[in-house]
Amino acid sequence: MEIKITRDTMSDIYFDALKIRNQVFVKEQGVPYELEVGNSVEEASSVHFVLYDDGKARGTVRLLADMNKHSALVQRMAVFAEDRHKGYAKSLFNELLLFSEKSYFTTLTLHAQLSARGFYAQFGFEEVGEIFEEAGIQHIGMEKKFN
């Protein structure tokens, strides 16, 4: 297993991330493609993580730093359906957390689909605010502060 990181939106790593996101969010969950990959500035400003196993991309997540560089937004966490429950998401998320600590972020935030909030809670994320709808799916804001 290997996790690759890129900021290059012309790289093979980024295109692998898009393939996973397209399958999970657009095809499985019905999120319009324009919403999923509609903001090219966010795409280019993000750090994209892709987990590979046996030479195949299995999961992805991206991290978008705020302008102040002290906090970041975790987005687009996705693993192919056939690769779920194999520990890939945990490995990917642990790598993102290590990267975030090394980058001296003080706070990470995310919008968790309600079905995934338990996953993020195990990494120390706490729910903030009220449940809201995003792309037709119920979400809750979550936050983790680093000491």
Rank of each mutant, 00 (worst) to 15 (best):
P32S: 11
R117K: 15
Q75R: 13
E134S: 10
E42V: 05
L110I: 07
V31K: 15
L98Y: 05
G38Y: 15
L64Y: 15
E42C: 07
T6A: 01
L97Q: 12
A112R: 10
V74W: 12
A121H: 00
R84M: 04
D53F: 04
A81Y: 10
V24Y: 05
V79H: 09
D83I: 02
D53H: 10
R84L: 05
K4D: 03
K4V: 08
K86I: 01
S40I: 15
G30C: 00
L108E: 07
H48I: 03
M67Y: 12
I131G: 03
L51C: 05
V26C: 10
H85S: 08
S40N: 13
I5Q: 02
S45Y: 05
A72G: 14
R76W: 04
R76N: 04
F99T: 02
A72F: 11
S45P: 07
L110E: 09
E36A: 07
F105Y: 15
F93I: 06
K4H: 11
Y52N: 00
S46I: 14
F93D: 08
L97D: 04
S115L: 11
R62S: 01
A78E: 09
A78L: 06
H111S: 10
L110A: 05
M10N: 13
E126N: 08
K86G: 00
E101M: 15
A17T: 09
H111D: 13
F125P: 04
Y104Q: 13
F49Q: 04
F49A: 08
R21P: 02
V41A: 11
M67N: 08
L63G: 14
F80G: 11
A44G: 13
I5R: 01
H85N: 02
E36Q: 10
F125Y: 13
F125N: 13
E127C: 09
A57T: 10
V79L: 09
V41I: 14
